[in-house]
Simulated scan of single mutants.
Amino acid sequence: MAATKSAYQRWDIHQRLQHIGVFSSFTLCAITGLSIKFNHAPWARSIVDFFGGFETMFKWHLFGGLILTLACIYHLVWMAVKTWKGELGWAVMPTLKDFTDLADHLKYQLGLSEQPARFDRYSYKEKFDYWAVFWGMFIIGGSGFVMWFPEWGASFLPRWLIDCWRVGHSDEAVLAVLVIFTWHFYNVHFNPDFFPGNTLWFSGLMDEQVMEHEHPLELERIRQEVNRHGSI
């Protein structure tokens, strides 16, 4: 991890591009998709008019879904390359410590402990955000392609499963929007420690003071490496 006197690089250019691709395409899919689901609402009709009609908006929805899929494939390829080079660790994998961190965090928030949870490279909240994308892409992405190419889907899937996926595509998307714009946005942007916004997604850097608060165990390890080798 590269470091300066006051900031540490947590994301490289590939991770930043992947995140930009995911959040921009997800936002487009959310705006157009919710307008399709709630098409009788006045606000939905306004969005349809903004896009120049329902058919045009639907094409933008498909375009957003395609970009979202490509961004996820980009991430999987990047992970495969990093793993092949031996540069990707297992820090993002869930462990028993995540459950103890959750318990410690709840006790601290409820005033039952004076010691907050001490997170390593990724907290349980960040791991939840990360792995939720895989589940969401399986449900939303898989069902989306089946509905986009119905003849292809019907060639190997029973009708009842296609109907279930159609409902799942819509309802899972609503759940994803709620999670992103409440849980995720609060944790990384609206939280008083980051407000009015966390710039990590753009710069790839995290301030040392923020590191001490959010990832103290990782920062301790980095400082130990600096003391041993003189630089990172």
Rank of each mutant, 00 (worst) to 15 (best):
N187A: 12
N187S: 11
Q209G: 15
I31S: 11
I73G: 03
L217A: 07
P196I: 08
D193W: 11
A117V: 01
M1D: 13
C72L: 12
H61T: 11
E87H: 02
F145S: 07
H213A: 11
S231M: 12
D101E: 14
I73Q: 00
F119H: 14
M57V: 08
A117G: 03
I73Y: 02
V81N: 06
V179D: 06
L88W: 06
S123L: 04
T27R: 01
H61N: 11
E214F: 07
E126P: 06
T27S: 13
L200I: 14
D163C: 06
F190C: 08
V179N: 10
Q18N: 13
Q15L: 14
F195P: 00
L62W: 13
N198P: 09
S25C: 06
K59I: 10
F145Q: 06
G230N: 09
I162R: 05
W152H: 03
Y8M: 00
H229D: 12
F119P: 06
S46D: 09
A2T: 14
M57E: 09
R16I: 09
G204V: 07
E225V: 14
K107E: 01
P94M: 11
F54I: 10
L66T: 14
L34G: 09
F190I: 05
Q115H: 08
M1Q: 13
W160K: 05
Y130E: 04
M137I: 15
E225G: 12
A117T: 03
V48T: 04
T32F: 04
L76K: 01
D163E: 15
R10C: 01
M1C: 10
M57Y: 09
K107L: 08
H19P: 03
W152G: 03
F51N: 00
W60T: 04
N39F: 14
Q9L: 15
A44T: 01
A3T: 15
